[in-house]
């Protein structure tokens, strides 16, 4: 039930962000998000609310850690 989906912010009006992922559009409230996102940021969405602004760089760095420990080249 705690499923949460990362979605890209396409526009913001007051306390509501219009978000999109893979062609699916939605509106999410920003009442509890850790930091207010900007257009182009990704947010983790759960039950109509943004929970967190995702750090895309952090995701890339996780993959870099994998490739370092496994000796692969995933991230340029």
């Amino acid at each position: 039930m705690c499923l949460a989906v990362p979605m890209e912010v396409v526009s913001i009006e007051d306390n509501v962000a219009h978000v999109e992922v893979g062609g699916v559009k939605n509106q999410v409230r920003l009442d509890i998000v850790d930091q207010v996102p900007a257009v182009g940021d990704f947010v983790i969405v759960h039950a109509g609310f943004a929970l967190r602004c995702i750090d895309r760089q952090e995701g890339l760095e996780t993959l870099k850690l994998f490739q370092d420990s496994l000796g692969l080249e995933l991230v340029k």
Binding site: C2, D31, I32, A47
Partner: peptide, 10 residues
């Protein structure tokens, strides 16, 4: 759980 409770609180 804690994921959902803040959305209800808000």
């Amino acid at each position: 759980f804690e994921t959902t409770a803040p959305t209800v609180a808000a």
